[in-house]
Amino acid sequence: MTHYMLSIYQPAGPPPSDEVLEPIMRDLEALNAEMREAGAWVFAGGLHDPSTATVIRTKDGEPLLTDGPFTEGKEVLGGFTIVSAPDLDAALEWGRRLSRATTLPVEVRPMHDGDPR
């Protein structure tokens, strides 16, 4: 089984109203429960606003810390889910379902298994 990261991208800016967000969160919780029952769910998490980020870059061997997101954009990484799937097709199906539940774009990407090659 391979781990895949399902990255959820959302519009930058304030979150939607509770009346918009509540059914999305209900659908997301139902999907997470289904992933757990199927043995596919590994980990998931939502992220705070990009303005809360700290970026660390090394310059001349020294870390330099700056406030704010790595890049500015119209869409930001809002959260992610890690799934275990037998192949890309199975991971893509979880990604499709996650996109339907959240109503947002989802990027599906395989994770390295620890072998740096």
Rank of each mutant, 00 (worst) to 15 (best):
88 L>S: 09
47 L>Q: 06
13 G>C: 11
26 R>Q: 15
91 A>Q: 12
3 H>S: 07
110 P>R: 07
99 S>G: 06
79 G>A: 08
109 R>F: 01
44 A>Y: 06
48 H>G: 02
63 P>F: 08
42 V>W: 12
44 A>V: 12
39 G>E: 14
54 T>I: 11
18 D>E: 11
52 T>R: 05
74 K>E: 04
11 P>R: 10
29 E>A: 14
10 Q>T: 12
105 P>K: 03
115 D>R: 06
111 M>A: 07
2 T>L: 09
102 T>E: 08
41 W>F: 15
38 A>V: 12
117 R>F: 08
87 D>G: 05
28 L>N: 13
45 G>R: 06
105 P>Y: 06
96 R>E: 09
24 I>C: 10
40 A>H: 15
72 E>D: 08
74 K>C: 01
94 W>D: 05
83 V>W: 03
39 G>W: 02
15 P>W: 14
28 L>E: 14
117 R>H: 08
87 D>R: 01
97 R>C: 11
100 R>F: 09
112 H>L: 09
60 D>R: 12
6 L>H: 08
62 E>A: 03
11 P>M: 05
49 D>P: 04
42 V>N: 10
16 P>Y: 02
64 L>Q: 02
39 G>K: 14
67 D>G: 01
17 S>F: 07
57 R>K: 12
65 L>G: 02
50 P>Q: 12
37 E>L: 14
112 H>W: 15
8 I>S: 09
99 S>W: 03
105 P>C: 07
26 R>W: 11
58 T>M: 08
89 D>P: 09
43 F>M: 15
16 P>V: 03
38 A>Y: 10
42 V>M: 11
112 H>A: 13
9 Y>N: 08
49 D>C: 00
25 M>S: 10
34 E>C: 15
75 E>P: 00
76 V>L: 10
79 G>N: 01
21 L>E: 15
12 A>K: 06
101 A>K: 00
113 D>M: 13
17 S>I: 05
105 P>L: 02
113 D>G: 14
58 T>Y: 12
116 P>T: 15
95 G>L: 02
35 M>V: 10
25 M>P: 08
48 H>M: 11
91 A>W: 08
116 P>R: 12
56 I>W: 00
11 P>C: 04
109 R>S: 14
54 T>W: 01
102 T>M: 13
87 D>I: 04
9 Y>K: 15
41 W>R: 14
67 D>F: 00
90 A>P: 04
46 G>Q: 11
5 M>L: 11
